[in-house]
Design a protein around this nucleic acid. Sequence first.
DNA 1: TATGAATGAGAATTCATTCAT
DNA 2: GATGAATGAATTCTCATTCAT
Lengths: 205, 205, 205, 205
Amino acid sequence: MSFATLNEMNKTFKKILNNASELFAEKGYEGTIMDELCIRSGVNKASIYYHFKDKSNLYEVVLTKLFSEVADQIIVAVSSQTAPLEKLKSFIETFAQETYQNKQMPATLMREIASGGKNMPIPARKQMQRILQTLSSILKEGAEQQVFKQVDPLTTHFIIIGSLCFFSTSEPMRQAIESEHPLDPDLNSTIAEIYSLISSAIILN
Amino acid sequence: MSFATLNEMNKTFKKILNNASELFAEKGYEGTIMDELCIRSGVNKASIYYHFKDKSNLYEVVLTKLFSEVADQIIVAVSSQTAPLEKLKSFIETFAQETYQNKQMPATLMREIASGGKNMPIPARKQMQRILQTLSSILKEGAEQQVFKQVDPLTTHFIIIGSLCFFSTSEPMRQAIESEHPLDPDLNSTIAEIYSLISSAIILN
Amino acid sequence: MSFATLNEMNKTFKKILNNASELFAEKGYEGTIMDELCIRSGVNKASIYYHFKDKSNLYEVVLTKLFSEVADQIIVAVSSQTAPLEKLKSFIETFAQETYQNKQMPATLMREIASGGKNMPIPARKQMQRILQTLSSILKEGAEQQVFKQVDPLTTHFIIIGSLCFFSTSEPMRQAIESEHPLDPDLNSTIAEIYSLISSAIILN
Amino acid sequence: MSFATLNEMNKTFKKILNNASELFAEKGYEGTIMDELCIRSGVNKASIYYHFKDKSNLYEVVLTKLFSEVADQIIVAVSSQTAPLEKLKSFIETFAQETYQNKQMPATLMREIASGGKNMPIPARKQMQRILQTLSSILKEGAEQQVFKQVDPLTTHFIIIGSLCFFSTSEPMRQAIESEHPLDPDLNSTIAEIYSLISSAIILN
DNA sequence: TATGAATGAGAATTCATTCAT
DNA sequence: GATGAATGAATTCTCATTCAT
């Protein structure tokens, strides 16, 4: 089943896709049961196999969609800015917001990275690279304009992505932990904190 | 099967435990198949059930061991320091090293956080809280001594843990990504970078 | 869907029928999958059910066609001869040629006989009986004219049909067997051999 | 699951094997349903997969056993004779008897040959070659001793095997055909007939 | 303690068939 | 006549767990 634009997809296809996206994020690949997917989607089991070759193909389509949407958003947001620092801010904010609004992407990414990306479908991996590429360009541009220090983009990438993924997906856990901290930090302050952290670390003063 | 000290454990028990730890980290709870665990461990399937009640009990033992070891190391390392900044450094370094040497812990943690910690056994969760507690104390002490700014410990925790977990578990992926970055950042420079990042952000100048 | 003359059939009907005939011969009834039949025939799945009641009806039509064609040919060929020995020769030659040119019939027949004919549709069975009847008449006539010995027609039938079916369908297998026999026997010599075998056995000297 | 001697096999293994042999012969590979095999064998579904890798492996074991037993019998019987004609008689008689007593082998062989042997497992094919080899040797020896004419062994093989397979498997069909022939030919007379047929055709007078 | 064998419940996938257009 | 989509009922295979020895 090729990956077409949303408009071309029919209703059942979309229902399956959305519910699969949810389930894979919640329970991982192995933890996701096709039967439950049918029930959630309100479709017949065989319908899934009409639209998708098998579970692994479904996973591929889901991941590619998930990652490409975030990549697209980031690229659009970043390209609307001109200054490297603004671009960096845009990158962090967009990733944070996307990630916080839709926890499926960070959850899935974390699982994939945990298993060493062995099962990560190639097209999905391509989308992850687009995101990394975008950050690399920003950092390079900043360094060229002598605004940023020379930093390793991969490390920087993991600091940003890693902390934001942990932050957004840990929400339910944080509530489970009987914390002595009355104030659960909100998204915006976290974004601000991470942004100030990163920028203070890489800005050439 | 209660959780005893390593010395009391017999060979089969240890073999199962180690291989289970490996497998759970590699493939997650659902992805780990008891049959494969037998083969890897070179023991009979029924033996597992002699030593452990069931899969979920095995998981509990594995996770508790995994997290308590890291928690212990951190607490020991941190308590050997007196100044809050040194303690923070110690915290980051110990977590980074533990995490990098044994990828099982970060991989497992990431999966657990990705599923909202729903399946995380209570004793394992307790160990995670010990780690968080330690960081909180450091931050609190630093703030009291007017060395640190007042920061949210949870956010800080996620920034540290998240970036280090992503960093250590993403090693195989980074190699798969045909990167234009000739120099793969090594552990020490990453630790240094994260430490400088965090400290520059929280030190009261 | 009744069994009409070929002229009345439309193109889709014919395509389905021919491909079904091929598939049933290649893979048997259970091994034939309706989906593959669609693909081979280049028609939609629902189209099959427009033209044929169901799989078993399709099978019936295919088999009846297959067997009636051979029966017709044999009867025509045999009736063009007058002497019993010539008739026998004609019977063997026609069956051999039909069988060798179109392997679908012997393959299908072998499967049916292997399953004890339990699934063989009545009309198809009728056609098989026409063939057997023809041979019986030849033998009876030969015996009456004191040209042939009195032999059991069924046994004779199986010797002829069995050896020729095995011969024509085993072609691909013979090539797979790394034979020390440089010369693969051709159809004509096999026909001659079988004819001489049978005739030498039943001719009253 | 390797193919060991019967003595080494346990009871469940044997039960599954025998029932599978029966079912494959009755209904062919695709027509055989694993569930039915369990029920017939009185074992749990998973037990089959404990003893055999999958359906196709089970099929392989069944066929190899089926064919090797017949091949063994033939070779033993033939080797107890010295004169080529006696050997030929032994070959035909043994094959006929084996085939008639246990219809599984001819039924399975017919299906396999009908599908061009495409699915025939290599080890099973090896056994078929042993049988052919035996006949070839007999014919060659007879020709060398100037007892037999020079005949093509493959054609001769198919005449013998084909007619006997058809004869033994067609038993139920013959009864279904409302025959005007009061006397169903018995095995011994058929053996005799085929032997006299073949021998009269190849003996150098 | 250890093991070969067995098992029930489940999970992925397939397949003949039908429906709405 | 033809088609894309949908479906119920299998069907193959898996997996955690238990049992007898």
